[in-house]
C-alpha cells in the first residue's frame, strides 16, 4: 500500500514539475514576444519621427534605393515574367478543358497579377533578398559592437541605419510591384499568343476591359504595407541580434520567415479591408 502511494506521489511530483516548467516556458515566450513587439514599435516610431522631421541621410538613402530597387529589378522581371506565363498556361488549359477553347486568359491573368500575385510575390522576393541583407548587415554590426560605437559617437543607429532603409523600401517596393505587374501581364501575353494562338489584341482587350484604377490601387496600396513589414522586421531582427555569427544566421532566417508569414497573413486582412471600402 505504502509502495503504491509512494509511486503515485512520485508520478504526481513529476507531472507537477512538467506543468511548472511548461508554464514557465510559455510565460517566458509570451513575455519575450511582447518585449520584442514593444521594441519594434519604439524603433518604428523613432524612424518615422526622423522621417517626418525630414532628418533623412540623403547619400545612404540613394545607396539603399539602388540596392532595394535597381538591384532587385532583374530578379523581379524574371520571376514575374514566368509567373505571368504559368498563370496564362493554367487558365488557358482549364478553360480549354471546360469550353474547348482558352477564354478569359487575359482577364484572369491580368486581374490575378495586378490584385494579388504582383504585390505578394514581389514582397516575398524582396523579403528574401533585401530583408535578409538588412538583417545580416545590422546583425553583424550589433555583434561586433558597431552599433554601440554609433551610440558613443552621439548618433542613433535608427537614424543612421534604419531611416534610409525605411525610405528606400517604402518607395521602391511599390515601384517594383508596378514593374512586376507590367512584366507579368506581358509574360501572359507571350504565352497566350504563342501557345494558344490568341491574337495579342484580344488578350489586351480582355485584360484591360475589367481593369480599373481601383483594381490597380488595390495591389499598389498593399505593397506599401508589405514594404513596412519587410523593413520593420528586418531592422528589428538586426538590431536585436545576439550570440555572434550563429546569432546572425538565426536572426536572418527568422527575419525572412517572419516577413513572409506576416506578408501572407496581412494580405488577407488588407484585402478584406480594401474590398470593404470598395477599392477592388
Amino acid at each position: 500500500m505504502t509502495k503504491y502511494v509512494k509511486k503515485n506521489k512520485t508520478k504526481l511530483m513529476r507531472m507537477w514539475r512538467f506543468i511548472e516548467r511548461f508554464g514557465q516556458r510559455s510565460v517566458g515566450i509570451v513575455v519575450e514576444s511582447l518585449e520584442g513587439l514593444g521594441k519594434a514599435v519604439v524603433m518604428t516610431a523613432e524612424a518615422l519621427a526622423y522621417i517626418l522631421k525630414g532628418d533623412i541621410p540623403l547619400k545612404s538613402t540613394v545607396i539603399q534605393m539602388v540596392e532595394v530597387g535597381w538591384c532587385s529589378t532583374p530578379i523581379i522581371i524574371l520571376t514575374s515574367f514566368f509567373t505571368g506565363m504559368v498563370l496564362a498556361l493554367q487558365v488557358g488549359t482549364a478553360t480549354a478543358n471546360l469550353f474547348n477553347e482558352p477564354v478569359y486568359v487575359g482577364t484572369v491573368t491580368g486581374f490575378s497579377l495586378v490584385v494579388e500575385l504582383g504585390p505578394v510575390l514581389t514582397a516575398i522576393v524582396v523579403a528574401g533578398r533585401v530583408g535578409a541583407a538588412i538583417t545580416a548587415e545590422l546583425g553583424t554590426m550589433k555583434v561586433t559592437e558597431q552599433l554601440d560605437a554609433l551610440y558613443t559617437l552621439g548618433t542613433s543607429p535608427v537614424k543612421f541605419l534604419a531611416v534610409s532603409r525605411f525610405v528606400a523600401c517604402f518607395f521602391m517596393l511599390p515601384t517594383l510591384t508596378v514593374i512586376a505587374n507590367i512584366i507579368g501581364v506581358y509574360g501572359g501575353m507571350v504565352l497566350t499568343t504563342t501557345s494558344w494562338d490568341v491574337p495579342s489584341s484580344v488578350y489586351w482587350s480582355q485584360c484591360l476591359d475589367f481593369m480599373t484604377v481601383r483594381t490597380f490601387l488595390h495591389g499598389f496600396i498593399k505593397s506599401f504595407f508589405f514594404a513596412l513589414i519587410i523593413v520593420i522586421v528586418a531592422c528589428h531582427k538586426g538590431f536585436n541580434t545576439k550570440d555572434g555569427a550563429e546569432g546572425v544566421g538565426k536572426a536572418t532566417t527568422s527575419s525572412v520567415m517572419s516577413s513572409m508569414v506576416l506578408i501572407l497573413i496581412s494580405d488577407y486582412f488588407l484585402t478584406s479591408l480594401l474590398v470593404a471600402i470598395k477599392i477592388k
Binding site: 561586433t144 559592437e145 558597431q146 551610440y151 558613443t152
Partner: peptide, 26 residues
C-alpha cells in the same frame, strides 16, 4: 554621451566606411 569617447576592445570600426570616414565620424 557626446562628452565621452569610448575605445572598444575589438575596435568596433564601421566596416562600410573608410578609415578616414571612421575617424572623421565623431
Amino acid at each position: 554621451q557626446k562628452k565621452m569617447g569610448y575605445v572598444f576592445q575589438e575596435a568596433a570600426l564601421f566596416d562600410s566606411l573608410s578609415i578616414f570616414e571612421n575617424v572623421a565620424f565623431g
